[in-house]
Amino acid sequence: MKPNVLLAILMGVGAALAQQPDQPPNVRHVIGLDKIKRNANGHLTIQNGVMQFTAKKTEARVPASSIEDIFVGSETTQGGGTAGRVVKTAAIAAPFGTGKALTLLMRTKVDILTVVYRGADGGVHGVILALPKGLAETTRTQLVAAGAHTSAPQPELKDRTKP
């Protein structure tokens, strides 16, 4: 009887998870969006020809047609967000170089997406976003499909990560 109950619970959890709508990936705003704070985490969506970044209650919208170029790069940086930074700063004072061990453990590889667009006044803007590894190329494809312009791909800028 017990295995049946467990199976039913597992199936129920699985079904509940399957019904959840796809959450957009967590993206870090490095710089470039006027209304959004630096290093704010949020969600990036591309819908109806508009790239939208939402961080808490603030959102920034860039029409895909105004995008003049998109660059994809990658970087190895510290993971764990703000909490990670706090933990690592605290660990600096720890004895026997444990802080350095933490440095090695908390590495994470991210994609860097640079979006260059022109505002209504003609001014050039450069938006830099840090995305989970492997998502920048997909996002670029989506933006191009939505009407963004881009120059030739720059493979020499990819995989230039120095861990």
């Binding site: 710089i31 660059f71 790069g73 860097i112 450069g126 830099i128 020499e156 800028l157 230039r160």
Partner: peptide, 17 residues
């Protein structure tokens, strides 16, 4: 100079800021 695009635009945006 070989410099990643994000550095080029980060310098520009940070200068404006």
């Amino acid at each position: 100079v070989s410099i990643p695009a994000e550095f080029r635009y980060a310098i520009y945006e940070r200068l404006i800021e």
